[in-house]
Write a protein that binds this DNA or RNA. Structure first.
Lengths: 334, 334
DNA sequence: CTGAAAGCGCTTACAG
DNA sequence: CTGAAAGCGCTTACAG
C-alpha cells in the first residue's frame, strides 16, 4: 500500500490541492513548498491510486484520433478491430477515425490535417516513413502512438513486431522443410521498406542453404506483378521454396495453382486467402505478428496515459511473432 | 456510461444501502423492494463501476491459497512465477502457497487440508484427477480455480491448454519434416493421463504417415525409462521421428546424444534442456502452452471475483498453443 | 427490514 | 500562491 496524497499533504503541512498541483506540474506553487513536497513524494515512493484516478475521470470524455489505411487492406482491418474492441471497454473514450486506401503520402497528410481539427487528445497512426509525414507529425503537441511501422519522431510509444525475427522464423521452417538445403526465392514489396529488408536478412541468417542459392525479388506489393514473378520462378524450375515476406501473396498463390506446382511456400500474416491456402496444405506455415493486439495495445497505452497519467515502461512495445500452421486454432489474441 | 446505484435507489425509492443488499444478495430486504430493485437493475442494465469497487476494496486484504507441485518441476515453476507476478500488482492480495514435489495424491490432499486452515478466500490448484482429490475439493465452499489440469468439480474457472490441438500442431510440423510420410514414435507418460492421450490423438489426426507406422510408448514421466526407451527406438532403426508428448524429455535427449542419432525430434513445453536442444538444432520444434500465463490468468480470475465481484465469461479459459522454433524470441507472455 | 453518514484516494472548481 | 469543500460510485458500520 503506497502513501496517499492526503498523507503527503499532512507531512508537508500543505493542502491536498497543493500536492496535486506539484504531482501534475500544474504550476502556481511556491519553490519552497514544491521542494518539500517533491522530497516527500520521492522519500515515500508515492504511486497514484489507479482506481481513484479512474473514478474521478469516469465523468470526463477523451477523444482519441486514429489515422489508418485499412481500406482494402485486411491486415489493417484486424488492427483496427483490436483498437475498437479495446476502446469499447471504456465508455468515456471516443474514437475519431480517418481511414483511407493505399500508401499515398498525400492522403495520409490530409488525414492528419483533418483529424487534428477534431479536438483530439491523442493520436494513433500507422505512419508512412516519408519526410513530409515525419515533418507533419513532429509539429504535433499531443501524444502519438505509432502502430506497425516505426519512424524517427518523438512518440509516446511504438507498437509493432520484430521483422528480423519474423524472417528468422521463416528460415527455421525452411530448415525443417529442406533439411538438405535448397534454392529459395524471397519476394518482398520493395527493398526501400525497412521491414521487408529486415525479413530478408532474418531469413538468410537462419536458413542453411548448404551451398544453394537464395534469391530476392520485388513485387511492389502488387498481386499482378507477384503473379507474373511467381510464374517465372516456377517455370525456371530452379527453386525449392518461395518465401513471400510481404503483400502480393494471393497473386502468387494463383500462379502456383495454375501451374500445378508443388513448390513449398512460407508466407507472412494471415489474410483469408492465406488461411485458406494453409488449411488446404498449400502453405507450410505463415509467420504472423498479432495484428489485433497491435491495435488493442496501442489503445491501452493511450488510455493509460490519458486516464491514469502513466506512460508505458518502454517506448518500444513489441508484439510477438507467431508460427501459424495448418491446425492452428483461433481466435486471435486481443 | 451505465446507471449508478444512487440512481437505482432514487428510481426505486429506497436507500443506496438497500440497493447494495440486493445486488450482493446480502438478504434482509423485503420481497417487494427486492423485486422493484431487481426490475430496475435489469431494465437499465446496471454494471458496477470497477474503479469504485476497487477503491472501496483497496483497504481490505484478500488471502488466496495456491496448491502446486512445482518443486523439481520447471514447468510449474513458470506457472507459479506468472501467478506471483500478477499477485504483486495488487498490494492487497496475499498469496498463501503450499507446494510439494511429485504426483502423490496424499501429498496433495495434505496440502489442501493444511491450506484450508489458513483462512483463505479462494483456492488456485493444479489438481490431480483422482477420486480422493475430487471428493476433497467438492467439499470446499470458497471459489476454486483449476490450473493446467481440468477435473470434474464445480469451479470458478479452468485455465489450461487444448491438448488435442497441441498434438495436431506437432503433426503439422511432422508433415513439414517428413513430406513423404514416415515411422513415428510417440512417447507419453501414461495412457491414464487425459492430456497425454489427447496429444496422441491430435498428432495422429494431423500427421500423414502415408502408409507407415505411428507407435506409442509410455515412460511414466521418468527420465531413466525415457532414456532406455529412446535407446531401443533408435537401435531398432525403424523410426524417422520421435514426438515426446510429456515429461522425460531430457532422458530421451541424452540417449539420442549418446547414440549420435540424427533422428528428428518434436517436444512439448520449454524447459531449459529443451531450449538448449532447440538452439543446438537437436529439436525441430516444441509446442508450448503459455505456462506463465496459466498462472497470471488464474490470479486475474480470482482477483476479478474477490475485488470486482465478477466472474469470467467462460469457465473454460484456454491458453494458446505456441510453436517455438530455434530462433523464437523471448520473453514469454505474462 | 431500512436509511443516513462516513470513507476509499483522487480531482475540480471556487474563494481568498 | 493556497486551502476547504464537494464529488466520482461504491461499501461499511451503525442506529433505529
Amino acid at each position: 500500500m503506497s502513501i496517499t496524497i492526503k498523507k503527503i499533504a499532512e507531512l508537508s503541512n500543505v493542502s491536498r490541492g497543493t500536492v496535486d498541483r506539484v504531482i501534475h506540474n500544474r504550476g502556481g506553487v511556491s519553490e519552497e513548498n514544491r521542494k518539500k513536497i517533491e522530497y516527500i513524494i520521492k522519500k515515500y515512493n508515492y504511486k497514484s491510486n489507479r482506481h481513484a484516478q479512474g473514478l474521478v475521470n469516469s465523468k470526463k470524455t477523451f477523444r482519441v484520433g486514429v489515422v489508418i489505411n485499412n481500406i482494402g487492406n485486411e491486415f489493417f482491418d484486424y488492427v483496427l478491430e483490436g483498437l475498437m474492441y479495446e476502446a469499447n471497454k471504456s465508455s468515456n473514450i471516443n474514437l475519431i477515425i480517418k481511414n483511407f486506401k493505399g500508401y499515398d503520402e498525400e492522403k495520409q497528410i490530409e488525414a492528419i490535417d483533418s483529424i487534428m481539427k477534431e479536438n483530439i487528445q491523442a493520436l494513433i497512426i500507422n505512419p508512412f516513413n516519408t519526410k513530409k509525414v515525419i515533418e507533419k507529425l513532429s509539429q504535433i503537441k499531443i501524444p502519438i502512438v505509432l502502430m506497425n511501422n516505426d519512424i524517427d519522431i518523438e512518440k509516446l510509444a511504438f507498437v509493432g513486431c520484430d521483422y528480423y525475427n519474423s524472417g528468422q522464423l521463416s528460415g527455421d521452417i525452411a530448415n525443417i522443410a529442406l533439411p538438405s538445403g535448397g534454392n529459395v526465392a524471397i519476394i518482398v514489396g520493395s527493398y526501400k521498406i525497412r521491414g521487408h529488408v529486415e525479413r530478408i536478412e532474418g531469413f538468410k541468417d537462419a536458413f542453411k542453404s548448404k551451398g544453394k542459392q537464395v534469391q530476392t525479388f520485388e513485387n511492389q506489393d502488387d498481386d499482378e506483378q507477384s503473379y507474373l514473378l511467381t510464374k517465372d520462378i516456377i517455370l525456371s524450375n530452379g527453386y525449392d521454396l518461395i518465401y513471400y515476406a510481404a503483400a502480393g501473396i494471393s497473386g502468387g498463390l494463383k500462379a502456383i495453382a495454375e501451374t500445378g506446382s508443388k513448390i513449398k511456400v512460407i508466407t507472412v500474416d494471415e489474410t483469408k486467402a492465406v488461411r485458406k491456402a494453409l488449411a488446404e496444405g498449400k502453405i507450410l506455415a505463415t509467420i504472423t505478428q498479432q495484428p489485433y493486439k497491435q491495435g488493442s495495445r496501442s489503445l491501452q497505452i493511450v488510455r493509460d496515459y490519458l486516464v491514469y497519467n502513466s506512460k508505458p515502461l518502454d517506448v518500444q512495445n513489441m508484439t510477438g511473432n507467431r508460427v501459424h500452421l495448418k491446425n492452428m486454432k483461433f481466435p486471435v489474441e486481443k
